[in-house]
Design a protein around this nucleic acid. Sequence first.
DNA 1: ACTTTAGCCTGTCGGC
DNA 2: TGCCGACAGGCTAAAG
Length: 270
Amino acid sequence: MPELPEVETSRRGIEPWIVGTRIADVVVRDRRLRWPVAPGIEGRLRGRRIESVGRRAKYLLIKTDNGTAIVHLGMTGNVFIVDHDAPAGIHDHFDILLDSGRSLRFRDPRRFGSFFFSKNPLAHPLLSGLGPEPLGTDFDGDYLWRRSRGRKVNVKQFIMDAKVVVGVGNIYASESLFLAGINPKRSAGRVARQRYAVLADAIEDVLDRAIRAGGTTLRDFYGGDGEPGYFRQQLEVYDREGEHCRHCNTVIRAIVQGQRTTYYCKSCQT
DNA sequence: ACTTTAGCCTGTCGGC
DNA sequence: TGCCGACAGGCTAAAG
């Protein structure tokens, strides 16, 4: 389940292998991703030199000397480095072949991921309306508090809204609300200013620790270096329904909010 | 402007 | 053992 820490882990994993190389070719085997892969993408990227690998929200931005490849991992996507002649599996939907003899390979069993080309990625319709980066300077408790005034939606769905703040998916939303001691069912508009300060800190803390652990691997996430993420061991509530809270021993509960499972501790989170 | 719902997609798992 | 429905959840678009 790639959320911000997993995408960042992937970014760091592939960066040393691809920056400074030139794109020899692009091979798309299945164009049916979340949005159809544009037929011209191979020609736009072929021959270009890769200058950097960035990240905006959960999008990887592979910047070349003439335009940027935008890659989203969706739910089950992975990017990793292989040799040119490595045989492709059925879910290996595209390769970016590099002049180094390696390829950046994209694997995504459920095809919720995406692959675009853009001259100006931040102006792309899918990226232009995104909220601030949670680890950036324009994100803090007062920002969340301002944005939440008048909002009836529960605070868990509120912080998962990419127009509010990016990168906080289902795992880290549950985790940060636990760390902040906030009940996920509470209306966003009814969370006090001071509690948003605590929540913003919790979001930053959990994302930072998850990045340092290489992300969370529940089933099928592997970083660009092929290593799973180890943050699962630090999860306090996510996927722990029926287990005991490590702080107060209360049984962790699971509820459904916005068609997604939320995990929380009834006594630590009020 | 906000809220809710449906839908995309396939591997895995529990129940019968 | 095999079948089948539920579930996982990123995100957008459309409807209310």
